[in-house]
């Protein structure tokens, strides 16, 4: 979908709809949606593209407005989430990974995504594909309250279709293990930003091992002071360099191991 290839009249209506969304004018949004449908354009393609661009630019009100459009024209809510909102989160995530975007941009994109997701959530209960999404238990280790990076990892994992069980920050080692058991997690993701709390990570890994769960669970660790060497030393599977890397790595790894492939659509 390329916007500049659309007829002038359609482009104008889209612009007006953007403005209506920005100003949260419900009636205008409905009216303009009708008008757009009347032109006979591929409204689903336009809406998905708009959703991803609004999230990428961190436009909260516009993401909400276009999510309403998606619901109104009957786009499958899972599609609206994955091909629309979440796709936008991946776009900005990729830019960030390449050094073309900054953390605040990820944060406003993430809040735009969640705002839209909230509208979709009542319709998302039954997973249309039938398979349960893989579950990731995520948190910041005990003694550390830094959770901005952890939240970004969570956002990007969710955007990639993972179900995240968020334990928050300052999480004791055994709570990671208990949650992994309770939710039959496919992976555990731990963050820390402080050198003083890094030693909590091997604790969790050892506990997973002694309870016989380590083989079935991928362990990701991350945060500014961690290196891939350190991750290897403590027996984690990996320490991708940022939140976007974490989501990409987990997606790829799980799709490589056949038993999990079906869970990842």
């Amino acid at each position: 979908m390329e916007f500049d290839e659309l007829p002038e009249e359609v482009r104008e209506l889209i612009e007006q709809l953007d403005e209506a969304a920005e100003d949260e004018e419900e009636e205008a949004i409905e009216e303009l949606t009708e008008k757009l449908l009347d032109t006979g354009v591929d409204m689903e393609a336009i809406t998905l593209k708009k959703l991803s661009l609004c999230v990428m630019d961190g436009e909260e009100e516009m993401s909400v407005g276009w999510t309403k459009v998606a619901l109104k024209i009957g786009i499958d809510p899972f599609k609206a989430l994955l091909k629309g909102l979440a796709a936008g989160m991946s776009l900005i995530g990729d830019k960030y990974e390449k050094g073309e975007a900054f953390v605040p941009q990820l944060m406003i994109a993430s809040s735009a995504m969640y705002e839209g997701m909230e509208l979709l959530s009542p319709y998302l209960k039954a997973n249309s594909s039938g398979a349960d999404p893989s579950t990731v238990v995520i948190g910041t280790v005990e003694g550390d309250v830094h959770d901005i990076g952890k939240n970004l990892v969570k956002t990007l994992l969710s955007a990639n279709g993972f179900n995240c069980v968020d334990l928050g920050n300052d999480v004791e080692a055994d709570r990671f293990v208990e949650a992994a058991k309770e939710y039959q997690a496919t992976a555990v993701s731990m963050s820390t930003l402080m050198t003083t709390t890094m030693a909590e990570m091997p604790k969790v890994i050892n506990m997973l091992e002694s309870s016989g769960m380590r083989d079935k669970i991928k362990v990701m660790v991350g945060g500014a002071p961690l290196s891939t060497d350190y991750a290897a030393k403590i027996g984690a599977d990996v320490s991708p360099k940022d939140a976007a890397g974490a989501a990409n790595w987990l997606k790829t790894t799980l799709s490589e191991s056949p038993s999990d492939t079906e869970n990842l659509n």
Binding site: G58, P104, I108, S111, N151
Partner: peptide, 11 residues
């Protein structure tokens, strides 16, 4: 709040 600072820094 640090998270708000970050977002407000772009807004």
């Amino acid at each position: 709040g640090a998270e708000n600072l970050s977002m407000l820094s772009i807004k």
